[in-house]
Design a protein around this nucleic acid. Structure first.
Lengths: 241, 241
DNA sequence: CTTGGTTCTTGTCATGTCGACTCTCACGTG
DNA sequence: CACGTGAGAGTCGACATGACAAGAACCAAG
């Protein structure tokens, strides 16, 4: 068996990154409008070609910085590879998909390869008739499923909130991603039973215009390193989203 | 932006498959001895190059059949992509890793690209000093972690046992993969509380040479479609394996 | 055929967790 | 200063869990 590399099919390898954030209680995903090439003008996930001298993780980080102004830092997470024939009309492309969760997406700007960048509610992207380039709709769908799953087994939920947060902030993350309603009192009991989920800061948030008792501000504890505090019930998990 | 495919770095894309099975209460992985090329003579995961006109899933299925006599059927599961520079000395290769779980691995034979195929206990591969080709040791490590994880959230555990099984058979799967000891009585209670985990067949297994009451034979119920019956406790999950 | 050892199976009990609910507290608004 | 609102604390019953004990069904040795 000879190892002439020319006898094996050549592929381009790309990375695509699904960046999620919370906008007024709704899960949103960052999309860019393609400036050229196939699907020009369509919304797509930010991404680009992997270079030979970088790892996949590094490529994802680089592309995210190039196409948007998001600095994904350390919360990039690979979750799938997509290589169906014909998924890119130009050539054979296998893409490795990453997801990231950020809390503030204020400086969303388009990079060199993108004409525009904007946040879109996930439910509109998945359920509505909003065509995405390539198979990116499927990738977004898988990413959302992965987020819901990882919030059970990792501390991913804390990535949606800031360094300090109220329990209501955190609860709304679970409610939005899992599409459930959680009892605030039980949520507090679960999170504050001496486990290290949340650490009180002593400060209080100022109530909204509708009044109410000011909520305590917490920061995330150590327990999130090895899992999440809540698990979806079997019936909740069966939801299709 | 021009779309001349020659201006983008070319990669070879491969699929590697980690096939796991249970041998006398121990988790084993199927490895092949490389017949030629880099790492000739070393043990490696079965795998090979993806072709342009097939999906990644199809490539994994094909390679598994070519290099071994395993017919992985529908239980192939993609779990990661690996593309570090230099992981293959020949060229730029990105590999997409799959895992499979089978119950009977009697007809293990080497295919065209492999000189030999054999099962190896996972703990020897990971902890002992058994060098694998490329970064396959890391891939096996990730695959084992994924199996342990998926056994909490999918019905993967049932893939280790046959169409009918005793509760002890099934319990040993959890014990071997999670490296824990489970109480047989509580395990039975959990699995048989009218949920549809196990369905009695009415038959009984014949006890081993050491005697004992013959165990009931069950078949898997519907509940495994949407999760697993057991969850690891936080302390168990912290184990490094 | 009896005895001991082994495994499977059923049962019990104390403890812990979970969902649902009520009540009080502290704020803003009219 | 009442009132609405959201935060936080407490209660209760249902259920799940871990630990353990005891009975049932088999094998093997004496």
């Amino acid at each position: 068996m000879a190892y002439d590399s020319s006898q094996y099919p050549a592929f381009a390898v790309t990375v695509d990154i699904a960046v999620f954030t919370m906008v007024s209680g709704q899960l949103n995903v960052l999309l860019v409008r393609r400036a050229g090439g196939p699907f020009a003008g369509s919304w797509a996930l930010p991404g680009g070609f992997k270079l030979p001298d970088e790892t996949l993780d590094q490529a994802a980080l680089r592309e995210l910085r190039e196409e948007t102004t998001v600095d994904g830092a350390s919360l990039l997470r690979q979750f799938g590879a997509y290589g169906d024939p014909g998924r890119d009309p130009r050539m054979n492309v296998v893409t490795v998909a990453y997801l990231a969760v950020v809390r503030d997406l204020v400086g969303v700007a388009a990079g060199s390869d993108a004409a525009e960048a904007a946040l879109h509610p996930v439910h509109k992207v998945l359920k509505g008739r909003m065509p995405l380039a390539f198979d990116h709709r499927r990738i977004v769908h898988d990413a959302v499923a992965r987020i819901g799953h990882d919030m059970e087994t990792t501390g991913l939920a804390t990535a949606f909130v800031g360094p300090t947060f109220t329990l209501t902030d955190l609860r709304e993350v679970f409610e939005a991603v899992w599409q459930v309603r959680l009892d605030g009192a039980n949520f507090r009991r679960k999170l504050s039973t001496a486990d290290g989920w949340v650490v009180p800061t002593g400060q209080r948030a100022s109530p909204g215009s509708e009044g109410g008792k000011p909520a305590e501000l917490f920061k995330a504890g150590r327990a999130w390193k090895s899992g999440g505090p809540l698990r979806r019930s079997r019936s909740e998990k069966a939801e299709s989203r």
